[in-house]
Every structure is written in C-alpha cells, then in structure tokens.
Design a protein around this nucleic acid. Structure first.
Lengths: 140, 140
DNA sequence: GGATATTATTTCGAATTCGAAATATAATTT
DNA sequence: AAATTATATTTCGAATTCGAAATAATATCC
C-alpha cells in the first residue's frame, strides 16, 4: 500500500485537471497556456527579462523564445534591451496587452478561486504546505 | 490573501517537478513521458483498448495514436483487433516490452517513492485526500 | 589584459501534442 | 431494416515543446 505511487498519480491528475481548466478559460482569447502564463507574470510583476519569465512559466527558454515571438506578433508585449546588461532582453506588456489582461484576469481569477474554494482555509494552507514539502524534495 | 491563486501555482510547480523527475528517469531508455505512461498502464493492467490507455495517460487520443505507433516501431507493444467490437484495437506489451519494464520499473518506483517519502504516512494520506477533493471539483 | 568560463538569448531540426475532420463500426431510433 | 446517433480510432496540418548548438555579452581567472 505505502510503496505505491498513487499519490503522484493523483497529483499529476489534479494538475492536469487544473491545466485543462485554465486552457479552456484562456483559449477563448486565442491564447495558449504558456502565452497566458507569460502575460500573467508580466501583468503582476511588471517588465522582466526572458529568463525570469521562463522560471515562472516552467518551460525551456527555447520554448519561451517562441512564445515571446507569437505574443509580439499579436502586439501584446514588446521587447526592450536592458541598459545594464546587453545580453538581456526585457519584456513588457503593451497597452493592448494590459487591456486584454484587465479584461481576462478577473474572470480567470474568479474561475480558479471557485476551484480552490472547495477546500476550507485550513485545508488550503495544509495543501500548500504538503505540496511545497514534496516539491522541494523533487528538485534534484 | 485568500483570493489569490498561490495554491494552484504551487500545485502546478510540484507536478512539473515530478514530471521532470520521471522524464529524467525514463529518457535514459529513449522513452518520453507518454511512452512510459502507456507502457506503465499496460504493465500493470494488462492488454487494453487505446481509449483506456488515453484516459490513464491524460493525452488526446490523436496523440495516443502517435505514441502507440512509436512504441510499435520500437517493438515494445503490439496491436490486436478486438473480437468483440471491430472498432476497438487492443494494445499489449510484447515480450521485449515486458522485459524492458521489468528492468526499468523497480528503479523508477524506488526513485519516485523516495520523493514521496519526505512525507510521513499521515501527510501522504492527507495530501491524497486534498488533491482528490480539488481534482474532483476541477473536472467541469 | 587576454584567455576562459559563465550567463542570456536565439536558432535549428526533431519530437510531441493538439483539435478537427475522416473512417469504420456499433447502437438506437423510428 | 433503414436512418440516425454514438463510439473508437486514425489521419492531417498546425502549434507547441524540447535539447543541442550557435551567438553574444559579461564575469572570472591567471
């Protein structure tokens, strides 16, 4: 019983379910999961280097280059050169990008919260604790 | 505090970490995540229709068709026609596929268990309970 | 200060994934 | 029993992802 991997299976299923929900939420605006992830980070943290966005969105940087290209084509973000370090490209939302997120995000947030809110506050806090403990171990 | 989505973020991160670990584990044998997922289901449940494998591995059936093709090319599985229903294709491990899993699986299981074992037994059970509760809500 | 190592990003080709349409068969309706 | 609807699978083209190599700039070492 205790030597099986059910816990991980359940974890992957739950995450998959959440991802599908987000995808559903966001595909109406012609965005993919990673597109939205990148916009979301920029929306909340302000302009950021490519690398930092990668770390938040959890995809390879080569994939992020592609995501950034498509978002630039859609005129939702723009790319600036960092004055401090000429290797670095700073990404920021355009006016249009910000407007889109102003429109999408509150609805998305409500939708996601309604998922979480099947848990009471103590359960939510406990879940966070357990996942963090697991996740910490999992990085190498 | 309570209206934010941190819990989901942590969930997605933990799942991502687990997936990366599995990928690492399994890429040494030239397998991808979905390849391994399919083999694992067949290894544990015996021969199954394509559809049932899909449901376990959590990818679209069009993607599963591709996965099955590549595993057939590697001679790890084979495809039989169901005698009951001529729409259905039953997939089963070849001798070679079974041997591979006999080799891989115990190591994989240990590796995965060592991740889970940062949690004590009560924590593990509680995590399962919370994830199930969340996941249930998340399906539509 | 030049050589070497490190970091940030992009490019490339290949692999994986998806959704929608196509195909084939089975089940249900009328 | 024909027509309709539902289910299982595959095919197709496009989108996304990856890892490895390339490029460019900075930091470190000698």
């Amino acid at each position: 019983m205790s030597q099986d991997l059910k816990t991980l299976t359940i974890l992957l299923r739950a995450a998959n379910a959440v991802e599908h929900r987000i995808k559903e939420d966001v595909s109406m605006y012609g965005l993919g999961l990673s597109d939205f992830g990148a916009l979301e980070v920029l929306y909340h943290k302000g302009p950021l280097p490519v690398q930092s966005i990668c770390e938040k969105v959890l995809i390879a940087n080569s994939s992020m280059s592609y995501v950034i290209d498509t978002l630039i084509k859609k005129q939702l973000i723009k790319k600036l050169k960092s004055p401090d370090d000429r290797r670095v490209h700073i990404i920021e939302l355009t006016e249009e990008g910000r407007k889109l997120m102003d429109e999408i995000y509150p609805k998305h947030q409500d939708h996601m919260r309604s998922m979480i809110d099947v848990l009471d506050q103590n359960e939510e806090i406990e879940l966070q604790r357990l996942l963090k403990k697991l996740g910490k171990q999992s990085k190498k």
